[in-house]
Design a protein around this nucleic acid. Structure first.
Lengths: 208, 208, 208, 208
DNA sequence: GATGAATGAGCTTTCATTCAT
DNA sequence: TATGAATGAAAGCTCATTCAT
């Protein structure tokens, strides 16, 4: 379906050369049609990119959900570590998408910022709630503040890893991930000492 | 001096609208000259922006050095925390510059990427070396690996905070900083237990 | 029938935005079909507009004939005044058509100008002949030159009123009409003094 | 001066092919520059045409004033006849301008309609006032209503002649002018019978 | 009858750049 | 130093038209 091909081509050239650099001609060439034909599918360049960015954010959300769900059934520290690995895998696998994702922050299309903010809010809500459920199902009698603090630590780590993806390669980056893993271990070692762990709950846990 | 004004204007419009959005006309208007006159100072747009980005990175380096030096003379954990605050202050104070800094990663000018990578390498070397000196001057008999690990933890935290600057506002962000502070405290609480602290060394330390 | 709807839509958009402004898309939208479908009914845009303009001119001719015939059976000065009112009513009632009619004079389609000229000639012939019959049937022994002169005065007045329609509104225009009525009265007051009026002829008059 | 050449070229092509037909390319070709160069002188197409139409209307106003002033010093009926001839000469001399003038009525540029209406109001005021002064200076004790009526008759005639310019050629048109002349004669023959003519005033008359 | 999909030609406009002055 | 005037190249976009289905 050409609409999808157009979105892919749009994101490709956006990640390579930015919004102004992703010309209708380049996008059309990529798909194998003429620039005028794009206008049969999308009203104008902005509409095409709104659709493209919308998809980028939707995919991000879905992928993060997949990563989260796939990690269930392990020890809780391993779940958090898996999520870090999932985030890394997702962004390393789709560097184009990641670059596009980052540069949305400086997007010249005002409407895009609205989408981005809405996505961020929704994503944060989902993440927070999912983690709350997860942590509470692992520790009985854990205080709300403690849950909140765990999540904040994880978010800070995840942000650190995310930005490291864009800065470092190879071994340097691998060691950043190890540092994050170590930190996560420590978080839960402390929790295990403070709160009684629940039993037999995890296998039944389904997030949603 | 008009060259400096041109660089400032270039960075201003780059941060607002990206490379293609920072037109020679807008930059000239900002400075109060005509576009044709820019070519008296710079060969072309790319040369102007190379100079501008060079300056941006130099400023960043200098500012980070200033932050580092200004933090000396305190307890070592307070030094690291001060540096975090310094980074935050610097980027919060110059959001335009920060946006420009981030979008250099997706710069359409190949030569720029070279500059950015060179800067990153140099900045990392400086940071690593400065921290090595700092840590070694605080703990005697600390192993190289341990020093390395401390630095990596700090870098991960700093990256997390840096990205958080771009995502969160107000209280949400403040709490991220507190989480980072808490983490730093713990790093050095552990170190203090493991290694003997040196005395009276700090005042002699100068980082450059 | 779609052909008629297309003509109506074409004239509507022509009167609103001119020939180039009346796009195949707008015309198709108006009728509720797709632009490609127009080509089933008309070879191309020019053909459609030739048909549309042809109809516009035919309607004009028919309407003027209707106005003329409807006015029969009155005193001769009242007939001419009725015709003025008929012209005004026709054009005020269909301002779109009138604007289209006027802008045919500046039509970018050469073939249209031919149609317009042919229509004008035919219309003039009809008008002149109809008025000749009418005047001769009212006055015996009236000279050909005098008949001609009456017609020319009327045509000048009618043209004045026609252009006034496009320039003035409300009371200003109403008074223009009154001036024309007064003039017509005077024409026939003079004629009545100079020529003997015929009796009982009018019912036999049929104009076609 | 290129700005003036651009306006002339714009009006030429507007009169030939309408607003959409007067492309920036054609106008540039006419002047001997490239389309992009037009934008050095005018912000965009609309600005160019606003300037062009403004000039067209200004010229019209000035020319009508010149015609009016040049006619002074004759018998009053000859003055009105001279004005008719002046209008005819002006429009016959500049048929392009006249066609442009007419098609302003259906202009697709909203701002143009504002200009046109303002011009019409101003022109009407000037005409009415000039004629009032002229008539009052020729007839003592003439009533306001009578002056008004004379002006309205003239306006109707002038509109009739104006529209005839666009419809008829050669002898047919000449005879329309003669009909108008005859009508004007009659207006003032009647006035001369009703009102005492003033003496020795006309040479001192200055209109403005 | 109707249209989804495509396109060539051409439009207005922007922009980095040049060059004589 | 500075700029008025110009331009080539390319951008986004429109539109009449085609054609297989």
């Amino acid at each position: 379906m050409t609409k999808q091909e157009l979105i892919d081509a749009a994101l490709l050239h956006y990640s390579l050369h930015g919004y102004q650099g992703a010309t209708m001609k380049k996008i059309a060439d990529e798909v194998g049609i003429k620039p005028a034909s794009i206008y049969f599918f999308y009203e104008n360049k902005e509409e095409l990119f709104i659709a493209a960015f919308q998809q980028l954010l939707d995919n991000h959300q879905k992928e993060m959900e997949r990563v989260f769900n796939q990690s269930q059934g392990k020890e809780i520290d391993q779940i958090f570590i898996s999520i870090i690995h999932g985030i890394v895998a997702y962004h390393k696998d789709d560097e184009r998408g990641t670059i596009a994702y980052i540069s949305l922050l400086t997007s010249p299309i005002p409407e895009i910022k609205k989408f981005l903010q809405a996505h961020m809010l929704h994503f944060n809500d989902w993440l927070t709630h999912s983690f709350e459920v997860l942590i509470n199902s692992n520790y009985s009698a854990i205080s709300e503040e403690e849950v909140d603090f765990v999540i904040k630590q994880f978010v800070l780590l995840a942000n650190g890893i995310f930005w490291s993806i864009n800065l470092y390669d190879g071994e340097v980056f691998e060691e950043q991930v190890k540092v994050a893993e170590n930190y996560i271990h420590n978080i839960f070692k402390d929790l295990n000492n403070k709160y009684k762990k629940r039993n037999g709950v995890k296998e039944g846990l389904v997030v949603y």
